Simulated scan of single mutants.
Amino acid sequence: MKGFIGARQTTLASEVSLTGTGVHSGAPVSISLCPADDNTGIRFLLSNGHGDTEIPADQRSVTGVNLCTVLGDGNGASVATVEHLLAALHGLGVDNAQIEIDSCEVPIMDGSAAGFVEAIDDVGLAELEAPRRFLKVLKPISVEDGGAHGELVPNNGFHLDVEIEFDTPLIGTQRIEIDVNPGSFRRELARARTFGFMKDVERLWAAGLALGASLDNTVAIGDDRVVNREGLRYSDEFVRHKALDAVGDLALAGAPILGAFRSRRGGHRLNMLVLKALFADADAWTMIEAPRYREVRHAELSHRLAAANFAAERS
């Protein structure tokens, strides 16, 4: 199984806390990323002043995909803009964590996953006893949504092929293909920021959205230039951010995917349509477990060395 390090599940080695602002609400947010037992998965624990509400990071919890991905409990509690944090956890190979949050929106940080990656790297990962579980794609699943196309096909690792097309020479058509693992995620995707068009800002504000958006957390696109003084972090930062979003959205499968995801002119809605189409077809996927160390024998040493270096692999 290429692309994933370690045969056993992981969690955070210790708790780490962050503060920031909700990009849509504009409200201050505090979150804590906490260790969790094996087979817990990723779970959000919302503090609302009247007790705590737990929402699993699972495709069945998705209640919104307009501008960001929103998870809800079915009774009115929700947490929005989860995709960048989930991308960081999934991209670095964190299987289990509890995310304690005091707001209804994950902080936007600098518009990328870099702040979350740094926090996770600061505490490192701990290996658990249970074998890592994978979602293996068994046959192609394809979705058309207007002018967008998405699919998942069988593959021995997690591969992304994302293409975007915007009617502006500042973006145009961009495409990225990448085998996602902790190293490639850090180098190629983690720092890619969210972006938006200046002409859309007033419309979003009128709708009560993007109240926390600024040049500190969004790549702003004007009529003929990128407004941010520092420019772009990658020449194709726009498509890299769409790939980052895809990593976060597909993390809602609940386990690392063994499959290749292809997206054309997509976004959160398409990502979720593909994932839901996969789960709707029981013949299209299966869950498998990595072999336990005692079963791999001669490979045991290399697995242990890989796991020991997991948290230290940075770029």
Rank of each mutant, 00 (worst) to 15 (best):
G74F: 07
C104D: 13
G111S: 10
V82S: 06
L92H: 01
P35W: 09
G74H: 08
Q59H: 11
P56A: 09
A97K: 01
D52C: 14
L89I: 05
A36C: 09
G76F: 14
V117F: 08
L86S: 02
M109C: 04
V62I: 09
G64D: 15
V106C: 12
A80D: 08
N75L: 12
D52L: 11
F116A: 02
I42D: 08
T53W: 03
L71A: 02
L67A: 06
L45S: 12
G124M: 12
A97C: 15
S61A: 15
D102L: 01
D58C: 14
R60W: 08
A130S: 13
I108E: 04
D73M: 03
L71V: 07
C104W: 01
L71S: 14
H84E: 00
T40W: 04
G74Q: 07
V123P: 13
P35D: 10
N75A: 15
D102G: 10
P35V: 05
V123G: 11
D122K: 13
A57E: 06
A97I: 10
F134N: 02
L45E: 08
L125H: 13
E129P: 11
L135M: 07
T63V: 15
G76Y: 09
C104P: 15
I120G: 08
P56N: 13
D52G: 12
L125E: 06
A126Q: 15
G76C: 05
T40C: 07
D52Q: 14
H50D: 13
A87F: 00
V106W: 00
D37P: 14
E100G: 00
E127I: 15
V123C: 11
G49S: 07
F134S: 10
D38C: 04
E83H: 03
R60Y: 09
V70G: 00
A119V: 10
I108N: 12
A130P: 03
G93R: 00
D122S: 14
I108P: 10
